[in-house]
């Protein structure tokens, strides 16, 4: 464990907790893409399959359970909670996210390190996570008024994988100099997808004005 990875995990955890608190406190999920939340549940389920098989550390197991639990909780709130689900804007959240799941799965079948069940799903989860934010970003572009909590949530979610990039550089030089193209490139693409958002988010923060993404 290194500072970059711990910072990345804490940023990721903070983003999810922030979203959960926003939904619970305001009893609203306006501006949040259910599709991105569903994609994240698929990402965590396909990545944390080894949860009960391989024990790395208490931290690792605990965080996996927290990520799985909170992401499913958020989807439950948005789909089934009697009040919150009324605030979900279905006809704005239009991204066909199954057009992301299938290609990522096919790509994982073609490009992976070992052809084993766990490895294929792990690789699939990396590919899917790199594009999982797209429905949310598309929804933000349509939103005329992005509330601060939603903007901060997306910012933290994007920042966590950026911190992981530093973690991979650190591990490359301090551990075994192994090249890991699949997580590295997936993480790079994932972070690159946020650059546009990061620019407008930081600018709105500097100019103390409302966050607005160009349509």
């Amino acid at each position: 464990m290194n500072a970059f990875r711990l910072a990345g995990d804490m940023t990721h955890l903070l983003s999810i907790i922030l979203l959960l608190l926003k939904i619970r406190a305001t009893k609203s999920c306006a501006g949040i893409s259910l599709k991105t939340q569903e994609l994240y549940v698929i990402v965590f389920m396909s990545r944390y399959l080894d949860l009960f098989r391989t024990y790395y550390s208490l931290y690792n197991s605990l965080m996996k359970i927290i990520f799985l639990g909170t992401s499913m909780c958020i989807v439950w709130y948005m789909r089934s909670h009697k009040v919150v689900r009324q605030t979900y804007n279905n006809d704005e959240d239009t991204f066909r996210h199954f057009f992301l799941v299938l290609p990522c799965f096919v790509l994982a079948l073609l490009v992976h390190r070992n052809f084993t069940f766990i490895e294929i799903l792990w690789t699939f989860s990396l590919y899917l996570e790199s594009v999982a934010i797209l429905p949310q970003l598309v929804l933000l572009q349509k939103s005329s008024n992005i509330d601060n909590l939603t903007g901060t949530y997306v910012f933290l979610l994007g920042a966590y994988r950026g911190l992981y990039l530093f973690n991979w550089v650190y591990r490359f030089f301090t551990e075994n100099h192994r090249v890991r193209w699949i997580p590295w490139l997936s993480g790079l693409i994932q972070t690159a997808i946020y650059t546009d958002f990061f620019y407008y988010y930081i600018r709105s923060w500097k100019n103390r004005e409302k966050l607005k993404l160009p349509a």
Binding site: R5, D9, H12, D50, T54, Y56, S57, N60, M63, K64, F67, R113, W122, Y164, N167, W168, R171, E175, N176, R178, R180, P183
Partner: peptide, 10 residues
């Protein structure tokens, strides 16, 4: 081996 392939990460 498990250590190196980043599976110990989240």
């Amino acid at each position: 081996q498990a250590k190196t392939d980043l599976k110990d990460e989240l």
